[in-house]
Amino acid sequence: MWSRKEAETIRRALQGWQQQGELTPEQVQRLEQGLEERRFDWLKLARYSFYVAVASLVLAVASVLVDQRVIDWITAMFNAPVLARALALTLLGIGLLAVGLWRRGDGARPYQVEALFLGSVLAFSGALAYLGDYLHPDSDSWRWYLLAATLLYLLMGLTLRSLLIWGIALLSLMLWLCVHSVEVAGWEGLWFGMNLPLRLALLGGLIALAGQAMEGRAPALAPLTRHFGWLSVLGFLWLVSIFGNHGNWDHWADVPQWQLWPWALGAMLVCLGAIWAGIRWSIPALRLYGLLFLILHLYSRYFEQLWDSLHKGVLFAIAGLGFWLLGTQAERIWSRQRDNTEGL
C-alpha cells in the first residue's frame, strides 16, 4: 500500500526509465497496475485522535474537579498514608504496563501503546516520590531518588523498546547529572575541572558512543540515542564557546574575549569533524547538525566581536543579509535535488 504522493513519485520514475529505454511500455503498464494507493492515512488519523483524546480528558478532569463530591473524594485519597499512595500508584503503573503490553501484541495500536507506557512511567515516578517522602530523606538525598527513577526509565525503555520512554530516560540522565554535580560543586563551581555546559557536553558524547554500540543489540533505540548525543555535544559545546570553562559569572565577565577563543575554535573543529564524519560515512543528519552549529558558531563570534564596535542597525543588516544568502543557496540546492529526482 502506497500513499498518493509515493505512488506519483514511483510513476514518474517509471516514466523516466521508459524514456531512457530501461523499461518497455508493457513493463511500465504492468508495474503501474501493481501500484495500490492508500486512499486514507488511518495511522495519521489515529495519532491526531489520541492528541484530541488527551486534550478532551484534560478538559474532562478540569470539569469534574469543580464537583464538590469529587473534591472530597480526592481529598480523602490524598489524606491516605503516604505508603498507601505509593502502593496504589505502583499497582496503577503495573496495570497500565500490562495493558500496554497486551495491546502491543496485535501491533495495530502503536500510539495507544505508547500512551499507556507513558502513563505507567508517570505512575511509577509518583510512587517513587511518595516512597521517598515516606522514608523522610534530607534535601541532599533526592538526587539519588532521581537517579533511581532514571535507571528505572532506562530499564523500561530497553525492555519495552519504547522510543518515548527511552527519550525520557536520556533527558532524566542529563537532569540527574546536572542536579548531582550542582549539589556537589554548586552552580558556580567546577566539578572534576569542568563547568556545567562542559560536563553535559561530555555526557552527550558518551551517549552518542553508546548509541553507536547499541546498533547491534538494540537497533530500534540506537538512532534516537545517537541523535540525542550528537545534539547534546554540539549544543553544549556552543555554550562552552561563549562562556568557556568558567563557573563564576563575575570571573567570566572580567575575562578578555581572546581567552575564550580556544574554546570557540575547539567547538568549531568539532562541528567540522561532524561534517567530515557525516560525509565520510554517509550520515546526512550528522552532516546537517555539524553545518547548522558551525553557522551558529560563526554568527555567535560575529555578534561577540562587533556588538560594541558596530552600529546595531548595520550589525543586524549584515546578519540578515547573511541569512538571506544562506536561505537562497539552500533553496537553490533543494531545487536542484528536486529537478534531479523528477528527471529519473
Rank of each mutant, 00 (worst) to 15 (best):
L272V: 15
A253K: 10
S282D: 14
R301E: 11
N248Q: 09
R287H: 05
L298Q: 09
L306K: 02
S309H: 05
A285M: 12
G313M: 03
W252I: 06
P262H: 03
W261A: 13
I283L: 13
A274D: 03
I279M: 08
A264F: 11
L321I: 12
G278P: 02
F303H: 03
F316T: 11
D250I: 00
L315T: 00
A253E: 13
S282R: 13
E304Q: 14
L265R: 02
L260G: 07
L315K: 00
L286Y: 07
H311Y: 07
Q259K: 09
E304R: 08
A253W: 09
M268I: 06
I275C: 05
A277R: 11
L306W: 09
A264N: 05
L315M: 07
Y302K: 02
I279F: 08
G273S: 10
N248M: 04
L321N: 02
S300M: 05
C271W: 03
W276E: 04
V270F: 06
Q257Y: 05
L298E: 04
W307Q: 09
F316M: 06
L272I: 14
W281S: 07
L269C: 12
A267Y: 03
W263I: 10
D308W: 13
L294I: 06
A317Q: 01
L269R: 00
H297F: 07
L298V: 15
A317E: 04
K312M: 14
L306F: 15
P262I: 04
S309I: 07
L321P: 02
H297V: 00
G273R: 04
L310P: 04
P262Q: 02
I318T: 08
A267C: 03
D254T: 10
Y302C: 03
I279T: 09
K312Q: 14
H311S: 11
G290S: 04
G266L: 15
D254W: 10
S309A: 07
L265D: 01
W249E: 07
L269N: 05
I295S: 08
D250W: 07
L321K: 01
F303T: 07
L286C: 10
A274G: 01
A264V: 06
I279H: 10
L296A: 15
F293K: 06
I279A: 09
W258C: 03
C271D: 15
G273L: 12
V314I: 13
W261L: 15
H297T: 02
I318C: 09
W252R: 13
L294D: 01
H311L: 00
L321E: 01
A264P: 09
L260F: 15
G313Q: 04
P284W: 04
V270Q: 00
M268D: 03
H311K: 03
L291Y: 09
